[in-house]
């Protein structure tokens, strides 16, 4: 690929989604965009690039951006962030929010829905211990395609076997042919919205917990910093942030601190928990 073509695409992706594409990952353009070119009746990537250059067609640039995102997700991915939610965050909120009895969670790049639905199942399992509480889970993603799948809540046999305990499959899924669909009671707990993390967060409202997992990893450092700094403003001082296993705040921002011994869990630097000597940070 010509350097100016690579530049055109990597600028476009950076601007529209934050995705930072290093030249070594250039092969991904070929493999992910060629099918898109064919779908539009073009011969290949070169023609697609020419069309972008000549038309700056909004739908095309959107499709290119969407095609370049990595959407992999699975239920209870990495386990720990969900165990921590069940065993630490939720008991904490039960105390701190006992007057309001309302918890809002944001899955900030929710892809096909496994992450918000994992949290919904945890909350459903705990509901008996939280009578009269309201839970709101908001799942957002850049890609309308993954959000459609998330809303349907229909997963393949392979997808329901990665991370989902069989007891939860029995309790919260219905089989439709080869596929498995989440029951209405779980699907209704999650609201989905198309949303770009590069845009202002204000309209989303405030949250108690944010899951922003396996998305910052694709961004450059200034983009990570500005997103995390703005996320801080969306949660109160006693809120919680979860990042993916390969992500961290260290060296990126000072507004969040890791919680010692709790992998992937971060709290605001001014969290009341940090004022207590027992909860020393890493």
């Amino acid at each position: 690929m010509k350097p100016e073509d690579f530049q055109l695409l990597s600028d476009l992706l950076k601007r529209r989604s934050g995705l930072q594409l290093s030249p070594e990952k250039g092969y991904l353009l070929e493999s992910r965009l060629t099918p898109l070119a064919r779908k539009r009746g073009l011969e290949g990537l070169d023609e697609l690039i020419a069309e972008i250059r000549n038309t700056r067609d909004e739908t095309l640039m959107r499709d290119v951006t969407e095609a370049m995102t990595t959407n992999e997700s699975f239920f209870f991915r990495d386990n720990t962030p969900f165990d921590l939610f069940r065993n630490h965050v939720l008991p904490g909120l039960r105390e701190c929010r006992k007057d309001r009895k309302h918890i809002r969670i944001w899955c900030a790049a929710c892809s096909t829905g496994q992450e918000p639905y994992s949290l919904a199942m945890i909350l459903k399992e705990q509901q008996a211990t939280l009578p009269g509480w309201r839970f709101e889970i908001v799942g957002t993603d850049l890609s309308p395609k993954v959000l459609d799948k998330a809303k349907q809540g229909v997963y393949s046999q392979f997808e329901v076997q990665r991370g989902l305990p069989i007891q939860l499959l029995m309790k919260y899924f219905e089989q439709t042919g080869e596929m498995w669909q989440l029951t209405d009671q779980i699907r209704q707990m999650v609201t989905y919205k198309e949303f770009n993390l590069l845009d202002p967060f204000d309209a989303l409202g405030k949250f108690d917990v944010i899951y922003c997992r396996n998305v910052l990893i694709y961004f450059d450092q200034p983009t990570k910093t500005q997103i995390l700094d703005r996320m801080r403003a969306q949660i109160p001082a006693d809120g919680t942030l979860f990042l993916g296993a390969a992500e961290t705040v260290l060296g990126i921002t000072d507004v969040f601190k890791p919680v010692r011994g709790q992998r992937g869990m971060y709290i605001p630097a001014d969290s009341p928990a940090l004022a207590q000597p027992a909860a020393a940070i890493a």
Binding site: N79, F158, Q161, R162, G163, P165, I166
Partner: peptide, 12 residues
Amino acid sequence: FDREIIEAKFSQ
């Protein structure tokens, strides 16, 4: 099944 599924289920 594949290794990923066996690992997921065994860790379950």
